[in-house]
Computed example of a mutant assay.
Amino acid sequence: MADPQNLGLRLSVNGTRRQEGHTGDMIFGVHHLVAYLSRYMVLEPGDVINTGTPAGVALGLPGKPFLRPGDVVELEIDGLGRQRQTLGRA
């Protein structure tokens, strides 16, 4: 099993890398977050815990390139795999 505090994180939009980080840079470690949340709720296999974002958010980029319908977002975490979503209109 991979060490959850030693995983690379990458996010691309339309094939352009927007974010790259590492779980070792998290303020609170994975084990701490799981233990803390488990005090207040039952976590099941497959549950997702949103922990924030690594550097590279759109707000800091010139022209504020926010996501739009049709954009393709790919997220990859070492040892876990890759997700790909095509955004639709709300």
Rank of each mutant, 00 (worst) to 15 (best):
A2I: 10
L7H: 06
L7I: 10
R10C: 11
N14Y: 01
T16P: 01
R17I: 15
R18M: 11
R18F: 04
Q19G: 05
Q19M: 02
H22A: 10
I27T: 08
F28T: 03
H31Q: 14
H32I: 02
L33Y: 02
L33G: 03
V34N: 08
L37N: 08
L37W: 07
S38V: 07
Y40H: 05
Y40S: 03
M41D: 09
M41R: 14
P45Q: 03
P45K: 06
G46T: 06
D47M: 15
D47L: 13
V48D: 02
N50S: 13
P54Q: 09
A55D: 08
G56T: 06
G56P: 00
V57T: 13
A58P: 02
L59D: 13
L59N: 13
L59P: 00
G60F: 05
G60N: 04
P62N: 00
P62K: 10
G63H: 08
K64G: 02
K64I: 03
P65K: 08
P65Q: 12
L67P: 03
R68T: 01
P69R: 09
G70V: 01
G70D: 03
D71V: 06
V73L: 13
L75V: 15
L75I: 15
L75S: 03
E76I: 04
E76Y: 00
L80R: 09
R82D: 00
R82H: 06
R82Y: 06
Q83I: 15
Q83F: 15
R84V: 08
Q85M: 12
T86L: 00
T86V: 15
G88E: 11
R89C: 13
A90E: 10
